[in-house]
């Protein structure tokens, strides 16, 4: 069994390594073929990386929200880049023209929205729990009063 577990771990490690190599390869290809897009993506990364590192949720909900909002902010600069060209100069120009700020702002909005939603969820939960507890206590008190039950439920 231990051997099987070791074999399974080896396979996962091998898959992860493969994924890293494919990702690194794709980056290199992008840098080589589309240097402008690479510059734009690199400028957009810090917020995403920060969200990825700070999100402890296995489902990465904060990161996903930041990523989606960042993507929404990236669409217009990407369109500009397509129109201007894919070289390094075009990438730097689009980036410097405020694309990075826009993407970061969009990511920040996504992050903020996620936190606001979490706060709203927390408040709602507190309210719901309080109402439920109050309802239970009222019902229990009514039963105890009507049937003269002791705190343990016995009459």
């Amino acid at each position: 069994m231990a051997r099987a577990r070791a074999a399974s771990g080896d396979k996962a490690t091998a898959r992860s390594g493969m994924r890293n190599w494919v990702g690194a390869g794709a980056c290199l290809v992008t840098i080589a073929l589309l240097p402008g897009a690479a510059v734009l993506l690199a400028a957009s990364c810090p917020v995403l990386l920060l969200a990825l590192l700070s999100d402890r949720d296995p489902a990465r909900r904060v990161f996903r929200a930041v990523a989606l909002f960042s993507l929404a902010g990236l669409i217009a600069p990407a369109h500009d880049l397509v129109q201007i060209g894919y070289d390094l100069q075009a990438g730097l120009r689009v980036t410097m023209a405020g694309a990075a700020t826009r993407v970061w702002a969009a990511g920040g909005i996504g992050w903020g929205l996620s936190e606001l939603a979490a706060m709203a969820g927390t408040m709602t939960t507190h309210l719901q729990a309080e109402l439920r507890e109050k309802r239970l206590r009222q019902k229990l008190a009514a039963l105890r009063e009507e049937w003269e039950l002791a705190d343990g439920g016995h009459s």
Binding site: R61, A65, L113, S114, A117, T122
Partner: peptide, 12 residues
């Protein structure tokens, strides 16, 4: 909280 964050994702 999960549902709220999922909602934020959906808005994204």
């Amino acid at each position: 909280i999960s549902a709220a964050r999922d909602t934020a994702c959906a808005v994204g």
